[in-house]
């Protein structure tokens, strides 16, 4: 049984940088941000800075879940921001312009996300295009497609079901928190409850060996992109519900980069292989926590970008083998 303990330690170890970063952030706030840990229940709803962080971090957490899978196969998906925009536009136009039921709108958005993922998957796994290039196509064209759906307008809606996605509470807990938690649980069940996680890691770590061992590496890669597309469409629904509108121009803008950062911070190997979904969510929470903390300390949101840049570099350096070798030599 010491072995399983060791396995658990390794699994946690992958998420360690993200966990440590979140821990540092919490410690900082404990010391310098009065009231950061206060939780209040107003009108039967949970409120407070911590809740706020998780609530706002949900979108990036969703993207990071899908991104972690894709990166683990040795790829990357630059199109998630654009897919968010398409998904939001799909749902909004279905409800506002075609009078569809909100459930049909949600289903439509998810289907569009899956289709976008399948397109990326076909290019990468089928045609053998480099992932960066393949997903760049949709990154460029995706927002155009979203605008095509919305007719270039910001399509507003007011539908109780769609509004509930971002604004609702269940048992006092905000919906985004529940959705992100649900997605994490589903992701864990899908990857660790089946052999999919093993296949993804084997494919990303040594594709030729995985193929020779009988793993269907192309199908595994395609599946990762499809899952990533679906996760992005859920994130798109959240973002649209937040502003009760589909903004094809700005929904999810630059969030692909946050998602990559969160996944890598969460212990997913950038060259493919091991991944950690828990770590990806922690990474997303760290990014949001950082933003919120800086905001609470009246640091301008612009400086936040600079801090983020520092975080990206720190993460890069932390995972760089060459830096490790260099430090090890000293």
């Amino acid at each position: 049984m010491r072995d399983s303990a060791r396995a658990a330690v390794r699994a946690i170890g992958r998420a360690a940088p993200a966990a440590a970063a979140v821990g540092l952030l919490l410690a900082f706030n404990a010391a310098f941000t009065p009231g950061f840990f206060d939780l209040a229940v107003a009108d039967g709803r949970l409120a407070g800075s911590l809740v706020d962080v998780v609530n706002r971090g949900a979108v990036v957490a969703l993207l990071a879940l899908g991104m972690a899978l894709v990166i683990a196969t040795g790829g990357v998906d630059l199109s998630v921001g654009a897919v968010m925009a398409i998904a939001g536009a799909t749902a909004a136009t279905l409800v506002a312009q075609h009078g569809a039921s909100p459930w049909a709108a949600i289903a439509g958005a998810l289907a569009v996300g899956a289709a976008a993922g399948a397109f990326n998957g076909a290019l990468v796994a089928g045609a053998g295009v480099q992932p960066i290039v393949a997903t760049l196509v949709l990154m460029v064209a995706g927002r155009g497609a979203a605008q095509l759906l919305t007719g270039g307008q910001i399509v507003t809606f007011n539908d109780p079901v769609l509004n509930f996605i971002d604004g609702g509470f269940v048992a006092g807990v905000p919906m985004p928190v529940l959705i992100a938690a649900g997605a994490l649980a589903l992701g864990l069940a899908l990857t660790r409850g089946t052999a999919l996680g093993l296949f993804v890691e084997a494919t990303g770590d040594n594709e030729r060996a995985a193929r020779l061992a009988g793993v269907r590496v192309r199908a595994v890669k395609a599946a990762a992109y499809v899952l990533c597309g679906v996760a992005a469409s859920v994130a798109g629904l959240l973002a649209a519900s937040d502003i009760r509108a589909a903004d094809a121009n700005n929904a999810g803008l630059y969030l692909e980069l946050d998602a990559i950062l969160a996944a890598v911070l969460g212990g997913t190997a950038l060259r493919g292989g091991r991944f950690s979904l828990v770590g990806a969510v922690l990474g997303a929470l760290f990014i949001q926590g950082l933003t919120t903390t800086l905001y609470l300390h009246d640091v301008s949101p612009n400086a936040t970008l600079a801090v983020k840049a520092g975080a990206v570099l720190a993460v890069c350096l932390a995972v760089s083998e060459r830096v490790r070798a260099w430090v090890g030599r000293k």
Partner: peptide
């Protein structure tokens, strides 16, 4: 080059830095 980092991540950091700096 020095740390064999992926170009798209390093220049991504550069992007955040420039944009944040410009807005500041």
């Amino acid at each position: 080059h020095r740390f064999a980092l992926p170009p798209f991540l390093v220049t991504l950091a550069g992007m955040f830095l420039y944009r944040g700096g410009a807005l500041m």
